[in-house]
Design a protein around this nucleic acid. Structure first.
Length: 461
RNA sequence: GGCGGCAUAGCCAAGUAGUAAGGCAGCGGUCUGCAAAAUCGCAAUACCCGGGUGCGAAUCCCGGUGCCGCCUCCA
C-alpha cells in the first residue's frame, strides 16, 4: 500500500505501527448546519481509505470527532457558530449540535460512508483537553495573554514543516486583527477566557472559558488511538493552520510526533470556486435527491477522480455519474442471471489489477477502469462470477450495488399487462399496436427491452 | 505579499519519460419488425503557451499565461 504523505509531499510505502492494524483519525464535521456535498466528498475519501485497508486485510480502527463547541465567526467576534445557530432557530447549542450531528450521519449513511468505530464529541472531552493542555503548559509551550492561554509556536522547531510555511513572509493579520500580546503571529489559543458571553463555558486551571478548536483533535485522537498512530485525514484546507497547530500541540504534550502519515483530500469545486458554508453556494444531499439524483450517483462521481485532485461538480458531471451507475446496475441485473463458468480463472488478472490500483494511493479512477474493462470482457464471455467479482470490488467502492439491485421496486401491474398485450400484438405482427403500447409503457416511466427470453422492463430514470 | 495546487477530447477524469485508461454525451455498422441492450468501429495528430535537457516529454528543467485554495471557522 502506498499513500501520499503531506509531511514529505511524497507517495510513501505504508507501514503500520502494529503489523496488520491501521489506526486512522478523521477530522469530522462541525455540527451547526447541514453538511454539504463538498464536505461529503472528503468523507467519501476517508471511507474509501478505510475500506481499502480492510480490503487489503488490515484491521482498521477509525476515530472521528464531532465538533460541537463552536468557534468564532468572522463578523462577530465573540459569537460562536453553534450559538448563532441556536439563536437563529431558538434552540440551545446542544440541541442544534445533536440535530445536525444526526443529519450528518443520516446523509453519510446514504452515501454508504461507514460509521467510524468511535465518534467522539468535543463537549464530552473537555477534561481530556484540559489534561492535555496542562501537559503542554508544564512542558513550557504556553503563556498567558488577555485572551487566555496561548501556544508558543516558536518553541516547536518543526512548526512550519507540515504546511511548508514561511512565517516571516506571511502577511500576519492579512485578514484578521493580530492579538498584540502574542509573541508570534502564528501563536494560537489553547484555552479562551475572555468571552464571558459564551454560553458554553467550563472551569479550568486558567479560568472559566472554553477550548480552542485545535486542541480537541489532539486530545481525542491521543485518547482513542494512543500517542503514536498511523494516519490522520482531513481536507487540504486544514494543512496550514488546523493540522499544523494540532501537530505542534501533539509534540508539546508528548514530546514525540504522534501522527505518522498526514493525508489530505482535495476540494470539490463548483465551476470555478470552492463550495463552502461561507460562500453560500451549498448543495446538500437532500437537495440532490429532490432533483432526482441518487446519493450513490454522487458517490460514483467522487470515485471518478483521485482524492488528491480537485473535482469539478456540475449537474452534467453528476448526471454522467448517475448514468454510469445505472449502466453498471444494468449489467448486474443481466450478469447475476448468467450461469457460472466452470473456470473463472480468467478473472484473476482483473482482480489483481483492481487491487494494485487501490493500493496505489487509492487510485479509484483506475480501479473503476478495471471494472469497466471487466464488464466489456464479460459481455463477450458471460460468467456469473464476473458480477460476484464486481460485488467484491464494491467492498472498496462502496456503491452498495447489491442493495441497489435488490431495491428495484416491482413493476406495476398495469405496465406488466401492457407489456403482455404488446407481446400479443407482436406475435400478430401488428407493429402499429405494439409501438402504441410501448408508448404507453414509456409514459408510465418504463423502458422495454426485447430479449430472446421475452421482454424486460426497467424503470426509466 | 507569502505558501500550496491545478491546466489532458463536448463534459468528468486517469496516466507523470517510451509514444494518450475509463465513464458520460455524440456519430456510423451489426443485431432488432422498429427500438432497447449488447457488439464492432469513429472521435484528442501529441495533453495551456514559449524555451530547454533527453534517442525519446503530456510526463523532467526554466520562463510565461489562466484558474483555484490557504494565510479567519471551513472538507
Amino acid at each position: 500500500m502506498k499513500i501520499y504523505n503531506t509531511l514529505t509531499r511524497r507517495k510513501e510505502e505504508f507501514t503500520p505501527l502494529e503489523p496488520g492494524k491501521v489506526k486512522i483519525y478523521t477530522c469530522g464535521p462541525t455540527v451547526y448546519a447541514y453538511a454539504h456535498i463538498g464536505n461529503f466528498r472528503s468523507y467519501v475519501f476517508s471511507d474509501i481509505m478505510r475500506r481499502t485497508f480492510e480490503y487489503l486485510g488490515y484491521q482498521v480502527r477509525q476515530v472521528m470527532n464531532i465538533t460541537d463547541v463552536g468557534h468564532l465567526t468572522t463578523d462577530e467576534v465573540g459569537t460562536d457558530k453553534l450559538e448563532l445557530g441556536a439563536a437563529r432557530e431558538g434552540k440551545t447549542p446542544e440541541e442544534i449540535a445533536r440535530f445536525y450531528e444526526k443529519a450528518f450521519f443520516e446523509d453519510a449513511a446514504k452515501l454508504n460512508i461507514q460509521k467510524p468505530h468511535i465518534t467522539c464529541r468535543a463537549t464530552e472531552h473537555i477534561q481530556d483537553m484540559i489534561a492535555l493542555i496542562r501537559r503542554i503548559e508544564a512542558n513550557g509551550f504556553a503563556y498567558h495573554t488577555k485572551v487566555g492561554l496561548i501556544f508558543d509556536t516558536m518553541k516547536y522547531q518543526d512548526y512550519a514543516r507540515l504546511g511548508r510555511l514561511k512565517l516571516d513572509e506571511q502577511k500576519a493579520g492579512a485578514r484578521v486583527d493580530v492579538d498584540p500580546d502574542r509573541k508570534n503571529p502564528s501563536d494560537f489559543a489553547l484555552w479562551i477566557t475572555n468571552q464571558p458571553k459564551h454560553l458554553m463555558q467550563w472551569d479550568s486551571p486558567w479560568g472559566k472559558g472554553f477550548p480552542s478548536w485545535h486542541i480537541e483533535c489532539s486530545a481525542m485522537s491521543i485518547k482513542y488511538l494512543g500517542e503514536r498512530f498511523d494516519i490522520h485525514t482531513g481536507g487540504v484546507d486544514h494543512i496550514p493552520v488546523h493540522h499544523t497547530n494540532e501537530k505542534a500541540q501533539n509534540f508539546a504534550a508528548t514530546g514525540k510526533e504522534v501522527v505518522r502519515y498526514w493525508v489530505h483530500g482535495a476540494f470539490l469545486t463548483l465551476g470555478v470556486t470552492r463550495m463552502g458554508k461561507s460562500e453560500g453556494n451549498l448543495v446538500t444531499i437532500s437537495e440532490l435527491e429532490s432533483q432526482g439524483f441518487e446519493p450513490a450517483a454522487f458517490r460514483y462521481l467522487c470515485l471518478t477522480a483521485l482524492y488528491r485532485s480537485p473535482l469539478n461538480f456540475t449537474e452534467k458531471s453528476l448526471k454522467s455519474a448517475q448514468n454510469s451507475l445505472h449502466g453498471l446496475l444494468d449489467f448486474g441485473r443481466i450478469a447475476s442471471g448468467w450461469p457460472e463458468h466452470e473456470d473463472s480463472s480468467w478473472l484473476k488478472p482483473y482482480q489483481e489489477e483492481f487491487r494494485s490500483a487501490v493500493a496505489d494511493d487509492l487510485n479509484v479512477p483506475q480501479a473503476l477502469a478495471v471494472v469497466w474493462n471487466l464488464v466489456h470482457k464479460a459481455n463477450k464471455q458471460p460468467d456469473r462470477n464476473t458480477w460476484n467479482t464486481i460485488l467484491d470490488f464494491d467492498r472498496v467502492l462502496g456503491l452498495g450495488l447489491k442493495h441497489l439491485l435488490s431495491i428495484t421496486s416491482p413493476v406495476p401491474e398495469e405496465v406488466r399487462r401492457l407489456a403482455q398485450e404488446r407481446e400479443q400484438a407482436r406475435t400478430r405482427k401488428d407493429w402499429a399496436e405494439a409501438d402504441r403500447l410501448r408508448g404507453r409503457i414509456t409514459e408510465l416511466g418504463y423502458a422495454i427491452e426485447d430479449t430472446p427470453k421475452g421482454p424486460r422492463l426497467k424503470p426509466q430514470p
